[in-house]
Design a protein around this nucleic acid. Structure first.
Lengths: 121, 121
DNA sequence: TCTTGACCTCAGGTCGACCTGAGGTTCTAG
DNA sequence: CTAGAACCTCAGGTCGACCTGAGGTCAAGA
């Protein structure tokens, strides 16, 4: 499958696909003429890259996750798992705060209990 | 309160505090000599900045959230609220995926139901 | 007073993740 | 067999959020 087709199917721009290859994240095969040649497996992985990016993983981490042979993989994944779990709590707090500030009428956050609670982390 | 004291209290480096001021996020008062002078209210806001950053908000967005008079504030906050809610689902999916890949033995993700499910996500 | 540390501004560098353009090759429809 | 689309590499630019260093001012103790 050619890069343009993959870009259309995944919604990932051509130059981004090339960038991800440069970073070793998803590396397609090549045709005799040197054109990138993607399989369905590559497409699967591309979608996983986007999903991982949405939760804040860097390309370097994603590369690690996608390549079972890389050193330190387990540690990195466990670190990210921990981070993902913490993030849920962060998000709950942030949701409460954002909901609150929409209607908060205090001029000083330090005098508003809800705002102070969020500041206290 | 001087910038060095604030840095020590909040764990935010001095140069970062100056950067946040440049970006209009938390702007301290000044002493007669031109030194930055922070109040407890500023410190509260600094902590809120860090919390917001942890859920991925940009300094520009945080500035908006902290300044009730800025135009488009409500819309931006509601957009972020929506994003925060979506993020929780993303995190659940990511947690399941990361937990899975730790022990997944398939060479091809496209042939692994769990991996494919995440790619489809 | 004098020193030393904390403060100031301003310019320029770094890093990750793209994005753009130049200049050249390959594929495909007519 | 040729035009134009799609592909290629490589160099350089952008953006957000810092980070570092130069060169100078201000403040508090010996």
């Amino acid at each position: 499958m050619k890069i343009g087709v993959v870009a259309a199917r995944t919604g990932v721009a051509v130059h981004v696909l090339r960038h991800w290859e440069d970073e070793g994240v998803v590396v397609p095969d090549r045709t005799a003429a040197g054109h990138r040649d993607y399989t369905e497996e590559h497409v699967s992985r591309l979608r996983i890259v986007r999903s991982c990016q949405r939760v804040g993983l860097s390309l370097a981490s994603i590369r690690l996750i996608l390549h079972r042979d890389e050193a330190g993989r387990t540690e990195v994944i466990e670190r990210h798992l921990q981070h993902v779990r913490n993030q849920k709590n962060e998000l709950d707090a942030a949701e409460a705060f954002l909901t609150h500030v929409l209607t908060c009428r205090h001029d000083l956050m330090s005098r508003c209990d809800s705002c102070s609670a969020y500041a206290a982390g």
